[in-house]
Design a protein around this nucleic acid. Sequence first.
DNA 1: ACCGATTAGGTTGCGCGCAATTAAGTTGTA
DNA 2: TACAACTTAATTGCGCGCAACCTAATCGGT
Lengths: 143, 143
Amino acid sequence: MMPTDPLVLEAQLCFSLYSGERTVGAAYRELLAPLGLTYPQYLVMLVLWEDDGQPVSALGRRLGLDSGTLSPLLKRLEAAGRITRRRSDGDERVVRVHLTDDGAALRADAVSIPGHLASRMPLTAAETGELRRLLGKMCGHDA
Amino acid sequence: MMPTDPLVLEAQLCFSLYSGERTVGAAYRELLAPLGLTYPQYLVMLVLWEDDGQPVSALGRRLGLDSGTLSPLLKRLEAAGRITRRRSDGDERVVRVHLTDDGAALRADAVSIPGHLASRMPLTAAETGELRRLLGKMCGHDA
DNA sequence: ACCGATTAGGTTGCGCGCAATTAAGTTGTA
DNA sequence: TACAACTTAATTGCGCGCAACCTAATCGGT
């Protein structure tokens, strides 16, 4: 019984993750193209649909992204007419991100996406749940 | 019993994957910095350590990357002295990627990386295996 | 031998991610 | 009230990923 070489590509979790993320990303890209959203932009919109008017910092905390990523992304969403950015009244440092009517309406077109994606993935609902659980545990989301 | 809103960020597999990939990526970045390699460059080196002198197309097939990603990445590895690129003798279209002595020697510094990473991740070996299995199945790597 | 189709790789353009820096606003403390 | 420490975003620079396009080399059929 030979021990598996630890440096074989497929033996490394990193490659499964790397590869899996890009596979799912490609599927989302396809579904999101009609909405005129990229995959990260969709994630930002999800957070805004949950709770409109959040500061940039809150979006960053929720998604694990910093201003270096969010600032230009939000600028593009603003240019596309999906959001507006306004300095907060109380604290001029914070920029609050608000949905436009167009941005809020986009939610209706997005509700079907998780279902479409689940149906095209060769995993059962139980497997998907287990996958989410393991990924969450991996990131230290204690549960 | 309310049904969970399908658009809640955390209910979506995509976000677990997105987030997990970046978490693991950050861990690799830290371990790879002393070697002067980025995470994708490390994946390319893994493939070359397994089998030196492969054409660019073979690297792309193995990693799921196209020339738009690989060409500049390989150029940077070449500039760093880790690889060389030579047109194939038989077919002038194919470019074969070869490790330099430096690139080959780097393998010795890399063998400890998978172990270090596994030890800092809050998953058991069994969980990691299950995670890899699910990710593989998700990507259609029939097994 | 010729010519269209195919294949391999490179280039361009754009949108992330992330580190590092900067600028502006706010808070705490003397 | 002055002033240093802190907080919030924006900016810069670089390296991916990927789509779209381009060029050069090879192959296939006639």
